[in-house]
């Protein structure tokens, strides 16, 4: 039963991470997922210590981290990446002050071998919700990314959509941490999208391709975990990396 729950959780979270990743790679925000994975670490540590859902622990810390980065940017006008760097390393430092040694591995590379019914149900519902929201804003975000002026002339409220998009990133990172941990979460949004870009001829092939590759990588990784008894998180990322390598052969000119 546990395997089934793990697979369902992986399929949905891998899929939504891939789908979101196609937007993030286009907006050159691929490493944001990676950085935010680290930002969440204190919340992940608390969840592991007190035995509650990792996503629930990660989400408030992520929101706090994003607000801090945003506030610092308003005050200093330093580049966003430098501020993100400050916040994420400080987060990691804080987490390691109280993260018990026997929980380090789960926090860093995830563990979905023990998810139960309710956790799976909540993850699936959050994934579906995020997907519906992202599908609605997808083309608007892409247009705004091509030309903010053109998007504004088309009455697209760019700031509003960027905010929704950021909220989706926070949620997907919080979900993904459960699967691949803080350290590897970034790959869950980057690698499937990068692989899909090599296959894709248009936007829907790209975004849905990334979704499928994300899901498929999770299935492969979780099955490999059952066979080899190695941790699932790294196996999922390696499966995605392998698909990326294969995609190089299909690179459309």
């Amino acid at each position: 039963m546990n395997l089934l729950y793990s697979l369902i959780t992986g399929i949905f979270i891998g899929g939504i991470a891939g789908y979101l990743g196609s937007l993030m790679v286009t907006k050159r925000m691929a490493l944001v997922g990676d950085a935010l994975g680290h930002v969440a670490l204190p919340g992940v540590a608390l969840a592991l210590i007190y035995g509650f859902n990792v996503t629930l622990g990660a989400l408030p810390v992520l929101i706090l981290g994003i607000i801090l980065i945003w506030l610092f940017e308003m005050r200093t006008k330093l580049p966003m990446e430098a501020l993100t760097g400050i916040v994420f390393t400080a987060s990691v430092a804080i987490a390691f002050l109280f993260l018990p040694e026997n929980k380090v591995s789960v926090a860093l590379i995830g563990d979905i071998s023990q998810v139960g019914f309710w956790n799976t149900l909540i993850s699936v519902m959050l994934c579906i919700l995020t997907f519906l929201v992202l599908r609605k804003i997808f083309s608007k975000i892409i247009l705004a990314n091509l030309s903010e002026n053109l998007a504004k002339v088309e009455h697209i409220k760019v700031e509003k959509y960027n905010f929704i998009y950021l909220a989706c990133i926070a949620l997907v990172v919080a979900l993904g941490i459960k699967v691949t941990g803080s350290l590897l979460m970034g790959a869950l949004v980057i690698t499937p999208a990068a692989a899909a870009r090599n296959f894709a001829r248009n936007l829907s092939q790209y975004s849905y391709g990334a979704l499928l590759i994300g899901s498929f990588s999770c299935v492969l990784g979780i099955l490999a975990f059952k066979v080899f008894a190695l941790p699932a998180g790294p196996l999922i990322i390696l499966a995605a990396s392998l698909i990326f390598l294969i995609s190089l052969g299909f690179k459309s000119k």
């Binding site: 083309s139 892409i142 248009n202």
Partner: peptide, 13 residues
């Protein structure tokens, strides 16, 4: 490098 077809670009509207 952006996989965006001509048709999809018009469909933004």
């Amino acid at each position: 490098g952006l996989p965006l077809s001509v048709k999809e670009f018009f469909q933004f509207k």
